Amino acid sequence: MPEADRDLLVAAAWLHDIGYAPELRDTGFHPLDGARHLESLGAPARLVRLVAHHSGAVYEAEQRGLSAELAVYEREDSPVLDALILADMTTGPAGQSFDFDTRIDEILVRYEPGSEVHNAISKARPYLKAAVSRTLDRMAHQPM
């Protein structure tokens, strides 16, 4: 990760699920609710966009009929978003460390087949796996 983006990545990792907070719930779609809250606080636009688009949010927005609302926040296809996806897709809900496939399977077990999350994660799996692979490749090729 370029040094200039490291603090942004850490902030996005800490804040990406803030939209789950009951007092911030508006649409019930946590990436959008979190992004809107951060935007209302004057958070940097790039941080807001990363929270809005973490972990393939576009797939779940489609399932929920919220694509237009999410599209207000431009998605950046970047090493920072890829690294945020890696962090989210290798960490369980209680902070457990998982490999990618185990984490995806854990999500699919937690959410009922046919639910928005189950459907979205199933569709997003190739996109998420590619982001994780790109990040691991970048990490493997960085000089120590």
Rank of each mutant, 00 (worst) to 15 (best):
H37P: 01
E39H: 05
S40H: 15
A45D: 10
R46G: 04
V48C: 04
R49F: 03
L50W: 01
L50N: 00
L50I: 04
A52K: 00
H53Y: 11
H53G: 04
G56Y: 01
G56S: 10
E60K: 10
E60D: 15
A61T: 03
E62H: 13
Q63I: 08
Q63A: 09
Q63E: 13
Q63W: 07
R64N: 05
G65Y: 06
G65W: 06
A68K: 14
A68G: 15
A68V: 13
E69I: 02
L70T: 03
L70K: 00
V72R: 10
Y73L: 03
E74M: 05
R75F: 08
D77A: 13
D77T: 13
D77G: 11
D77K: 08
S78P: 12
P79L: 15
P79H: 12
P79Q: 11
P79A: 15
L81R: 03
D82S: 04
L84S: 01
L86G: 02
A87E: 09
M89T: 11
M89Y: 08
T91C: 12
G92A: 15
A94E: 08
A94R: 10
Q96W: 07
Q96G: 06
S97R: 12
S97A: 13
F98V: 07
F98Y: 14
D99W: 09
D99E: 11
F100A: 07
D101N: 07
T102A: 14
T102F: 06
T102M: 07
R103Y: 10
R103V: 06
I104Q: 03
D105W: 15
V109Y: 12
R110K: 15
R110L: 14
E112T: 08
P113Q: 05
S115Q: 13
E116I: 04
A120I: 03
